[in-house]
Write a protein that binds this DNA or RNA. Structure first.
Lengths: 149, 149
DNA sequence: AGTGAAACAACCACACC
DNA sequence: GGTGTGGTTGTTTCACT
């Protein structure tokens, strides 16, 4: 199956820093030929180790400065509907099914607090929400890349 | 300041899908010349709208299948130390300062449950944790890109 | 801001190790 | 798996609009 050596790790690290870095440069930095790097990258993508090359954008620059963390209790009968809603809603950046008293934790990116209210109203009106509790991110020490959609 | 039109949005969308897509292709899809796209991408990066080109890797493939969501109460006097710890710890994927009874929400990527315990023990031993509550992600409906480090 | 052309650089298939 | 080569493709600069 999937066997990764430390050269694969280095290549992933370099392309994580800059996915558009020429493979010739990557090759120089890891001590392989361009062809070998090209082949390894092809293999890593084919294996699903690298899912895709993407970008990290600034939510503030795109008008979505508010990050809300929403705990949600979802009616059992509506779980499937909730999941497909969460998968397709553009404001939902993350959605995890979690242990504990709440069923799901969502990360929601919106323009302002009115956006949070609109979102919760939308969820309730589709009967996808029994109860919820929302926290706001005041500041972020470390964040995952943000990909607009 | 930052003015973005819908062509910028399209370009960002296409490169978010595949950051290594040739700009010649992007140009064809948005109806501009390659040079114009090149110039817009340069501008978007310079403005910080695009922070970087990166990749989305599989945490499972890299041996980190467990995602723990950790609420943390941090001693006031240790906040600065906590923040620099969180910023540099490789397992901490996200760290947000939040409203509500807990100070911080962390996302932790680890190999197994023992990794969660080790992490909490490490935090406590450096006096960075007053109390905490950990939830495990059972499954993920939608996730942000994961960038190994 | 955008275009088109030309010079340059990177990619990748292939023959060989 | 790896290297090196060379034809093909992509990038980038620049004169012009």
């Amino acid at each position: 199956m999937t066997v990764l050596d430390d050269l694969d790790g280095k290549i992933i690290g370099l392309l994580a820093e800059d996915a558009r870095k020429p493979l010739t440069e990557v090759a120089g930095q890891v001590g392989l030929s361009t062809s070998a790097v090209n082949e390894r990258v092809r293999r890593l993508v084919a294996q699903g180790v690298i899912r895709r090359f993407t970008l990290d954008a600034s939510p503030e620059a795109l008008g979505l400065p508010v990050l809300a963390l929403v705990w949600a209790a979802v009616p059992h009968a509506r779980e499937a509907a909730f999941r497909s809603f969460a998968a397709s809603h553009p404001g939902i950046v993350e959605c995890h099914h979690v242990t504990g008293v709440w069923s799901y934790l969502l990360h929601l990116r919106v323009a302002d607090l009115a956006g949070v209210e609109t979102f919760l109203t939308e969820l309730k009106s589709e009967d996808l929400l029994e109860r919820s509790e929302t926290m706001l991110a005041l500041s972020t020490v470390r964040s995952a890349p943000w990909v607009p959609r």
